[in-house]
Structures are given as structure tokens and as C-alpha cells.
């Protein structure tokens, strides 16, 4: 959490709140800060910001903090918070929404690897219509390696390659690695859905 003093500005706070409520379909105003969500959050200890705090940040109109906290990126979408919420607020939908806003506004994610993984997954799934593990992991690894190299982190790239090679070897040995490309025949439909998704965002 930042140590800055937030200047509460009602109009801006309303715009942020309404936008997130519309997009996520969650009624954030129902939150009475009971913190049942925080008690059950499996990543709460590491993120600092728990689901209740995230809701508070949004209600207070702190756009920057709402988009730049570890919970948004490290949330594993286990849906424990929403399942236990007495007011039926699904906070995981809010972290999903904030990730999407960050992407649409081309903000640098606090955890680029997590964002890159999900983008790589969707790219691979859209390409063949089915997710091929080698293709998806390939796109992801190249993407993260390029970013690390740009920052001069050669060590991090080597470490990642070593770890993935080790896992790959284990998978080969146990016949869990598949080289056959699995694909949808009617990929025209998949492409049409991806195009429509893009158009929906533009709308």
C-alpha cells in the first residue's frame, strides 16, 4: 500500500466504481468489510491487499492503487472469497476486470509474467482452436525471455530455461509430452469469435 494521502474526489470515485461494477457485474456497494474474504484468501498473506481492501480502494476512488496491487495479479481465481461473501460479491471477478482494464489501457502489469501467460494461452487457443501445450508454453517463454533480456536479466532467462527443460525432460520420460498438433477443423468460427471479442471491446 502506498503511504500517500489520497485526495478523495467524489466524481472520479463514482466513475471508477460504476465502471468496475458494470464490467464485473458485482455490487461493490454491498461490502460491509466483514473480511471473511480476507480470512479465506490463499494469497492474501503475500499480496498484502486482500479482497476487502481492494473493494475499499475502488470505493475511495484510488484508481492507481486499485490497478497496481499484487492481489490483482496474484489472484488465483479460486473463488473462495466470493463463495464465502455474505453479500455475494465475487471479488475474483473484480481482479479479472482490473486485469482487463490494465490490458486495454496498455499499463505495465505489476507481474508481467502472469499477464503474459494468459495472453499466450489465448493466442495459442485462438490459433489452432485448441490449446497445444508446446505452442502455448513456447509463446509464453519467448515473450518473457525477450522482456528479461531487454532488462539485461540474462541470469533469469537461463534459470527459467533450465527449469522448463527439467520439467520437459520429466514429461518426456513419463510420456506426458505430446507433439501431435491438436486442432479444430472449423477454425473460421473461432476466428469470428475472436474478431467479435475485439469489436466488443472497441464498442
Amino acid at each position: 500500500m502506498s503511504a500517500k494521502t489520497l485526495q478523495y474526489e467524489a466524481e472520479g470515485a463514482q466513475i471508477l466504481l460504476r465502471g468496475i461494477m458494470d464490467k464485473s457485474g458485482q455490487n461493490l456497494l454491498a461490502c460491509y468489510q466483514c473480511r471473511r474474504c480476507a480470512a479465506g484468501c490463499p494469497v492474501g498473506e503475500e499480496t498484502g491487499v486482500t479482497p476487502d481492501r481492494l473493494i475499499r480502494l475502488i470505493l475511495l476512488g484510488d484508481r492507481e492503487e486499485a490497478l497496481n496491487n499484487l492481489l490483482v495479479w496474484k489472484c488465483v481465481a479460486c473463488y473462495t472469497c466470493g463463495t464465502r461473501c455474505p453479500n455475494n460479491i465475487q471479488t475474483a471477478r473484480i481482479t479479472e476486470t482490473l486485469k482487463q482494464i490494465a490490458k486495454e489501457e496498455h499499463l505495465e502489469p505489476l507481474r508481467p509474467r502472469i499477464a503474459d501467460f494468459h495472453s499466450a494461452f489465448m493466442k495459442a487457443a485462438g490459433h489452432m482452436g485448441r490449446f497445444n501445450e508446446i505452442e502455448g508454453m513456447g509463446i509464453y517463454e519467448v515473450k518473457t525471455a525477450v522482456k528479461e533480456l531487454k532488462k539485461g536479466n540474462v541470469g533469469a532467462v537461463i534459470e527459467e530455461m533450465k527449469n522448463q527443460a527439467k520439467l520437459g525432460m520429466k514429461m518426456m520420460k513419463k510420456k506426458r509430452m505430446h507433439f501431435k498438433v491438436d486442432k479444430v477443423k472449423n477454425r473460421t468460427e473461432i476466428k469470428a469469435l475472436y474478431r467479435k471479442a475485439k469489436a466488443e471491446k472497441g464498442a
Binding site: A77, K99, A125, R130, K185, N186, L193, K196, A197
Partner: peptide, 22 residues
């Protein structure tokens, strides 16, 4: 026949339309 990837958690985290459409 000819099923496609459901989008898994990645779709929900990146694209609300595809998360339902796939």
C-alpha cells in the same frame, strides 16, 4: 465433434466475451 478450447481461466482474466463465447 470438432470441439474447441474452453478458454480456461485465461479467457476470464483477459476477455469477458471469449470467456462465454468459447
Amino acid at each position: 465433434a470438432d470441439w474447441n478450447c474452453c478458454g480456461a481461466t485465461a479467457a476470464a482474466k483477459t476477455d469477458d466475451f471469449l470467456a462465454i463465447a468459447l
